[in-house]
Design a binder for these strands. Structure first.
Lengths: 201, 201
DNA sequence: GTCTATAGCCAGATAGAC
DNA sequence: GTCTATCTGGCTATAGAC
């Protein structure tokens, strides 16, 4: 029935032309730039170079494509965090690496905000609630909590909430005021804060 | 030409039935709950108890109504801040009063997020940019900066950015995770932080 | 000033030829 | 699998009676 290799790699059956992947990538970008509600399937199809009608071969509804976008973001987050775990042993280094990388996205955030935060905020307003999108904050939140716990902090959860909140809040100011420097300055402060919490021994 | 009294009080000419005000109030609530793009004029008209067609007597376009909503939020912010200025002389007390009041909105924020922050984020994604909505963060930001400056802090602007960012970021986590306690806990931490920065003399 | 009816447009989704 | 043409519904905005 299903191609075992494709199943293992998480691919769908045909997958020759990569249109499905192009559609998801285009949807990620367009939705980040314009928001979920303002982005039409025609926008996404055009950005992906796929005829409108063909979109429905890959995704039954606009919402199905949106779910795929969220899952793609989640997979990206997980692999980023796993890579940081592999590259660094010290929890303090891991935290600084993650938030340094986020701060380096200042220009992107100044233009369209944090892709995950804005998705959460928009989907929050749906009757069904944020659904899977809430994982976009829970995944980094839980990871951050784990790092603080590894540092021996009893208040690891609170610290994690503070850290993610600082990033998300700064991202909102950065995009509203169109000032990437806010993100850079916050990155420096966060690094200092982590050093104060986890002194080099 | 214009009624001088109505002009002084900022009212429009007729203003007998208060429909204009009801429409703006309904728009504020509905937009906060559903977002700008998902909210239709029919939603707003129904919430205000006004027939759809009549909306256009008061507002030429949906966007004109949206601008009125933003201006109403701004006027509310300014009067809140002015009231705090009047009620407290110490900048530290003023800051704690404002952020205590924000933290007390936990339930509301858990349901739909910060009304100003979500408006900014959504309007950021328009081609024209956030426009007037950016004032919704600039006004409290500038006020907060003034308080820190009155406390003698040279880094008043940075501290103000941090404080507003903490509030906005916590609001995003509060609504995404549907947990009003996050807001309460952050309120306590902010009060402590301000006390540490501005020790009672 | 108020309200009904509706025009005009554009989005999501489908049908069906290739 | 691919793509054109089109249906259907809902939204902004207007016309025009009262």
């Amino acid at each position: 029935m299903t191609d075992p290799v494709a199943t293992l790699t998480g691919e769908r059956r045909p997958a020759r032309s990569g249109k499905r992947e192009r559609l998801i990538a285009a949807a990620c970008e367009t939705i980040h730039a314009q928001g979920v509600e303002k982005t039409t399937l025609a926008d996404i199809a055009a950005a992906a170079g796929v005829p409108l009608g063909n979109v429905y071969y890959y995704f039954k509804t606009k919402d199905a494509l949106l779910q795929a976008v969220i899952e793609t973001h989640l997979a990206g987050q997980r692999s980023t965090l796993a890579a940081i775990d592999d590259a660094h042993d010290e929890p303090g280094d891991r935290l600084k690496t993650l938030f340094g990388a986020l701060a380096a996205q200042g220009e992107l955030i100044a233009r369209h905000g944090c892709p995950h935060g804005s998705l959460c905020m928009e989907l929050d307003k749906r009757a069904e609630g944020p659904g899977l999108a809430a994982e976009l904050v829970r995944v980094p939140l839980d990871w951050t909590e784990r790092q603080f716990r590894a540092l021996g902090r009893q208040d690891a959860r609170d610290l994690a909430v503070q850290l993610i909140a600082r990033y998300q809040g700064t991202a909102l100011l950065t995009s509203t005021l169109r000032d990437p420097d806010l993100m850079v300055a916050e990155g420096r402060r966060v690094a200092q804060w982590i050093d104060d919490l986890a002194p080099v021994t």
